[in-house]
Amino acid sequence: MTISDTALRAALRLYPAGYRRDRGEELAAVFADSTAGAGRAGALREAYDLGAYGLRLRTGLTSAGLPGRALAMAAPFAVGAAAGHAGLVLVITAFDGLPDPRAGGGTWLLLALLSMLPVVAVLGVLSGSWKPARMLALPAVTVVPVVGVLGYWAATREMPNLSLFARMSAFSVPSALWGLTVPSAPADLLGRVTWGRRLLVLAGFLFGVVQSVLPGRTYFGTAGVLAPLPLLAAAVAVVAYVGVRRGQVLPLALLVALAPSALGIFVVAVGDALGTGGIMLPFALVVVAGVVVVLRLTRPKASEVGGLSRAAE
């Protein structure tokens, strides 16, 4: 068995069983034609793309599904908000610590470079390309807590304890969720970056800055100034539920855009209310809620596969 066969089998395994039964042979035939003479790297790239669509089918994040369309609609706002939340705040945090001359220069350079990832992503979108945002979102999201720890270490020469690390991670929840919006959105729906989308990016950026700078400047304290935000998000959640029942995309897109902010504030605020070690509880709640959502989404959707079959008839 060649590497191409192995990659194809692995990619097809990611598809819902119904879809695989219906289209598996056809996908395999197109894959074989596309990778004929393409070499090992070409076959692996093709298999990656094939598997990615299988995962999208499983999670409902296709360009035909409501969640996928909502993510694409919220993506311009999210990419701006992620940059506003993570990039700017991390740069400010970095500069806050700079007066300490004993701080390692290399650490600060690394901090500055990592902090720039979301900013580079947003600049890419503003200049008309989604590619940097799609490529940098995941690394940017992954390194945010690391950047926080490095910043703390550079300023204090001590590693944060578990509670403080959880608090730093909780602070980066909105940025992480916003960052994940862009690669999760179907690429074919992101489309051209119009002036309307650029305005949404800038609106998101301002929102991200406002949402993060205030609690950020009080060293991850409660976000009293923005207390109405979770209430607003709860109202949006109700509107989104009604909208989804009616098959409307915009209410769900609004929820995708605002929920990360509300979640971040919820985690930090509840943690503060519960005391020093209490931050772990809401953090765990958010993780459990995320796992439940993913498990529900990844259940095979008989109606969707059936819908495709019906459409194909």
Partner: peptide, 21 residues
Amino acid sequence: MRTGTLYGALDRLLQQGLIRV
């Protein structure tokens, strides 16, 4: 266009009724 991207677009267009089998 890669295979997964192609079938993502085909499925959407089928569902929208813009193409047929």
